[in-house]
């Protein structure tokens, strides 16, 4: 899909119609967000037990008097029926009140502010690694299509996606942190080191593990996109004009074929952030994935809702952006559709 649309003409905006389309698409996000947050809230309500049963030791909870339990329930607004609670939550959200984590009483916004940068940092690093590695290897593979190197890359890429990620991570810790002692086993910083340089050694392993396991996909995409481009008329023209092979490949092929790859990569960022739970767990990374996991399991409504809202928004935003870009670049897309 993407490939077809992007290989078409560039910079071809269809003025007013396009602007309308864009606005419509962006507005379309809002009902989606409402529906999805409602579904998530409802799912949370369906999970067995309620936040109180996770707030304290079950034996201690069972010892509480009924009035104490009732007071606790009231404290967390669990007395209202589910619909009312959802709309109350929505109302507060619209007023900019994101609520407090039920476990610690800390404002949700503060938890997000603390955790999100860590996850973003890791995700961006992994994206960079996989994009650079993947596109360079993919393009090299395409240029030397069929060579031994190309085949080795294909097989290696396949192995990369076939090993369970946590297993890969644990093995990496075993080798690089415990046997060779090159890198720390986990965590994000040394105490009192806030600068980026001080953190790099902590980031290397998780970013590489995450990045490498993503590289194969990018590589495959870059390779076929490059092959596609190499068959295009203007490349043939360039070749026929007697330009050196490397220039044809580099300047014309590489550049053009990378555009869809970059879109693909941008599309992946939201999923990457939501999907980093496993790696964050393996490497004790203080990010948002592990926070989400425990929040779901302890029915920490406010936290789950805000994180889910964030993930969903990012996903929707990315896909809308892709839609709009596709429409902008590909005249075949019907703008009224």
């Amino acid at each position: 899909m993407l490939k077809r649309s992007f290989a078409a003409s560039f910079g071809f905006l269809r003025g007013e119609k396009m602007a309308k389309y864009t606005v419509k698409k962006i507005l379309g996000i809002i009902p989606m967000l409402l529906i999805i947050t409602f579904i998530i809230y409802w799912l949370l309500d369906l999970t067995p037990g309620d936040p109180i049963s996770y707030l304290m030791d079950p034996e201690a909870l069972a010892r509480l008097s009924e009035s104490q339990v009732a007071a606790l329930r009231a404290q967390y607004g669990l007395d209202d029926p589910f619909f009312i609670r959802y709309f109350k939550w929505l109302g507060r959200l619209l007023q900019g009140d994101f609520g407090f984590s039920s476990a610690s009483g800390v404002p949700v916004i503060q938890i997000m502010a603390e955790r999100l940068p860590a996850t973003l940092e890791l995700a961006v690093a992994a994206l960079c690694i996989s994009t650079i590695l993947g596109s360079v290897l993919g393009v090299l593979g395409a240029i030397n299509k069929g060579s031994i190197g190309d085949n080795v890359l294909t097989v290696a890429g396949m192995i990369g996606v076939s090993i369970p990620q946590f297993f890969f991570g644990v093995c990496a810790i075993l080798i690089f942190a415990l046997h060779l002692e090159w890198l720390p086993v986990g965590g994000r910083t040394d105490p009192e080191v806030v600068n980026f340089v001080g953190r790099i050694k902590y980031m290397i392993m998780p970013a590489l593990v995450l990045g490498i396991s993503m590289t194969a996909g990018v590589m495959r995409y870059a390779r076929s996109s490059m092959l596609d481009t190499m068959n295009k008329d203007y490349i043939k023209t360039a070749r026929s004009k007697g330009l050196p092979e490397w220039r044809v490949n580099l300047v014309h092929g590489f550049r053009v074929s990378l555009t869809p790859v970059i879109v693909l990569v941008g599309f992946r960022l939201p999923t990457l952030i939501a999907g980093s739970v496993v790696i964050e767990t393996v490497f004790q990374w203080p990010g948002i994935g592990s926070a989400f996991n425990s929040a779901v399991r302890s029915q920490n409504y406010n936290l789950v809702m805000m994180l889910a809202l964030l993930f969903v928004f990012m996903t929707l935003f990315a896909s809308t952006l892709v839609d709009i870009l596709t429409a902008a670049l590909d005249p075949r897309v019907k703008l009224n559709g």
Partner: peptide
């Protein structure tokens, strides 16, 4: 009822031989 959720427990003050230096939740605490 919500003692645990008090702001105090983000950086508690006690009377023991050590006091809270720096807190980076879920990262490290000094």
């Amino acid at each position: 009822i919500s003692l645990q959720q008090a702001k105090y427990f983000q950086s508690p003050i006690g009377s023991g031989p050590f006091m809270v230096g720096e807190v980076q939740m879920n990262n490290y605490t000094i």
